[in-house]
């Protein structure tokens, strides 16, 4: 079953498309990382999946064909929005009670136990908690609904590295315990590299890449060889990205992965996840390198975060 399925999905604000022609499936049981720079369309896609935003074009269904905003979809999807996931004037206990009243299912005991483990006092107003604790409260409240799909919009962006680890640990525990599927967006891939098993890359409002992380890593490889004559070679292999460093050229190709034969004079390396994402986030036309060697080096370090 797919927890999210879209076909030609698009959202247009005025004249600009926040997301266009997005056809995507996210399978059940995965932790899907939705990555891309700011303005890539991540929030737009998530808001459409939870029914806060209506698509301008295309269709989307959730949890194996459920209509978005149907009672069943609302019941089984928990969403943690980007900036204001809690009522700041409510105490933690009130946030729990509020969410309990607004849903059919609510596992208050587990939620209280989790908050106790985290050392978050129930009586404190959520607005007085640290950013990391607020995120944990929002996550706890969302998980207590026992959702089948948990959608988290940039939950890590306001957290320090330690809080990020704690947050992801809670998510991973919930996945292991309850089998909840997770879609998590971030503009920093580093934290997700270890936990995500499905990857969706958005850039400039377009879907650039989607697939199981293992499959993607297996299908791609980096070929390193002489810079001279690279262009023709790159075109032949429909290289995703071409980088030059001095006399050397690096091609990222999707041709079946490290197992394939290596052309004479070239070396083959497996590709890392971050390298892969960055390659797909570059402006289209990887086969026609425009950047100089130095330029491409600089760009590489420019992790969109």
């Amino acid at each position: 079953m797919n927890v999210i399925e879209t076909a030609g999905l698009g959202k247009c604000y005025g004249k600009s498309w926040a997301l266009r022609d997005c056809t995507l499936t996210v399978p059940e049981g995965s932790l899907a990382a939705l990555v891309g720079p700011n303005g890539a369309g991540k929030s737009t896609l998530m808001n459409m999946a939870v029914g806060l935003t209506l698509p301008t074009a295309g269709t989307a269904t959730v949890l194996g064909g459920q209509v978005i905003r149907s009672p069943a979809a609302l019941n089984d999807i928990a969403f943690m929005a980007q900036d204001a996931p809690v009522y700041k004037s409510l105490s933690v206990a009130d946030m729990l009670h509020l969410t309990r009243n607004l849903n059919r299912r609510f596992d208050a005991d587990t939620a209280r136990a989790r908050l106790a483990d985290l050392g978050i006092p129930l009586k404190k107003k959520t607005g007085k908690l640290s950013g990391g604790q607020q995120a944990q409260v929002a996550l706890t409240v969302a998980l207590a609904r026992r959702p089948r799909l948990l959608i988290l919009d940039e939950p890590l962006s306001a957290l320090d590295p330690l809080a990020r680890q704690d947050f992801l640990a809670t998510v991973m525990t919930a996945m292991a315990d309850d089998g909840v599927s997770v879609l998590l967006s971030s503009h920093a891939l580093a934290e997700l590299e270890r936990v995500a098993d499905y990857l969706v890359v958005l850039g400039g409002g377009e879907l650039r890449l989607a697939g199981a992380v293992d499959d993607l890593l297996a299908e791609h490889r980096v070929l390193t060889g002489p810079a001279a004559g690279t262009d023709q070679f790159a075109a032949q292999l429909s290289a995703v990205q071409v980088k030059r460093a001095g006399a050397q050229a690096h091609l990222l190709v999707r041709d079946g992965g490290p197992g394939r034969t290596v052309p004479p004079g070239w070396e083959s390396h497996p590709v890392g996840l971050e390298e892969l994402v960055l390659a797909y986030l570059r402006p289209a036309g990887g086969g026609t390198p425009s950047a100089t060697a130095a330029g491409s080096r600089t760009e590489l370090t420019e992790v969109p975060r």
Binding site: P71, F79, P85, Y87, L102, N103, A138
Partner: peptide, 8 residues
Amino acid sequence: RYAWTQGI
């Protein structure tokens, strides 16, 4: 965004 994504 919280209120309108609850089960109710």
